[in-house]
């Protein structure tokens, strides 16, 4: 009995020993893979589907093994970038500003054609009776309101800025309840079901969901569009040339700008990528400072 037990345990160990030889990393050292991430601004379960094909495109174009790692929050994306666990990231305006402040030498490479003049839509459930107007409707006061993620530019920073401008008060003093849905898909769902009466959502996500027939115009409608501001961008660490060879950052930039496949672009969703500079995001930094979101 005892020997049988010992034997079966020994057998398991033998198999495990054999398997360990097959494990990745057990062999010779490989070239360091190029790793990127993206802020989880939409339905998190679709992130892999959206970005694994971008990883394949970059690997093909750059000739370097490229991996995408999913993260659960905007802050986690910034942290991974700061700690050097990812070298490239698809950030929002605010997360990009935060990341570049934390990583000296890092720079914005490219933005979507739409990101030069990005817009936030304020949306409302039909039961509120609110309809689209030229300025932020004052009747919003007293309703329930949801932002997107706490760290979002289009779902938090810009809507909060315009709410404070219009009412001269903090959101918690204006609305009967203030929530943070987590991402844009969720904001849409929450306002569409009436869980929140009013919300702020990224216009690109709204337009795509409208096109895909996921929005019921009888139940939820746009009540105000913000003035345009700069938003999402690809940001790269300053030390990539050292790690992947001279001119690597330039090659990444070229690869991003030459991304033409509509299937790839649709996962952002953007029509094309155009060059971007750190200084493009100065207005975002100033706004975030004025709201006390960055020190």
């Amino acid at each position: 009995m005892m020997t049988m037990r010992i034997r079966s345990v020994a057998a398991i160990y033998a198999v495990l020993g054999a398997l360990s030889g097959l494990l990745p990393g057990a062999g010779a050292a490989q070239a360091e893979p190029f790793v990127f991430t993206a802020i989880p601004d939409e339905d998190a379960s679709q992130l892999r589907t959206r970005f694994d094909k971008v990883a394949r495109y970059l690997a093909r174009t750059l000739g370097v093994e490229t991996r995408y790692i999913p993260v659960k929050s905007y802050a986690a994306a910034v942290t991974a970038f700061r700690n050097g666990q990812v070298q490239l990231a698809w950030f929002g305006g605010l997360s990009g500003v935060r990341a570049r402040a934390m990583v000296p030498g890092s720079r914005a490479l490219a933005q979507g054609a739409e990101d030069r003049a990005f817009v936030t839509y304020f949306i409302a459930h039909e039961s509120t009776g609110l309809s689209e107007s030229k300025s932020l409707p004052k009747e919003m006061a007293g309703k329930t309101f949801t932002f997107g993620s706490k760290g979002s530019t289009s779902g938090r920073l810009m809507p909060e800025f315009h709410i404070r401008e219009a009412f001269g008060k903090a959101p918690e003093e204006i609305f009967s309840r203030v929530g943070f849905s987590g991402d844009h898909s969720r904001t849409l769902a929450l306002v569409q079901t009436g869980a929140y009466q009013v919300g702020a959502v990224n216009f690109a996500v709204w337009e795509r969901e409208l096109k895909d027939g996921k929005i019921d115009p009888k139940r939820v409608r746009v009540i105000w569009r913000t003035p345009p501001y700069p938003d999402y961008q690809w940001t790269i660490r300053g030390d990539v040339d050292e790690r992947y060879g001279n001119g690597f950052a330039q090659r990444v930039k070229a690869a991003l700008l030459s991304m033409k496949d509509p299937d790839l672009l649709d996962s952002f969703p953007r029509s094309a990528f155009i060059p971007a500079e750190n200084s493009d995001y100065e207005p975002i930094r100033k706004t975030a400072r004025s709201l006390g979101l960055i020190d």
């Binding site: 929050s73 905007y74 802050a75 910034v78 942290t79 935060r98 934390m102 993620s149 706490k150 760290g151 979101l293 960055i294 020190d295």
Partner: peptide, 8 residues
């Protein structure tokens, strides 16, 4: 959670 979201 807010403090972590703000990276503070």
């Amino acid at each position: 959670d807010s403090a972590f979201a703000d990276l503070r």
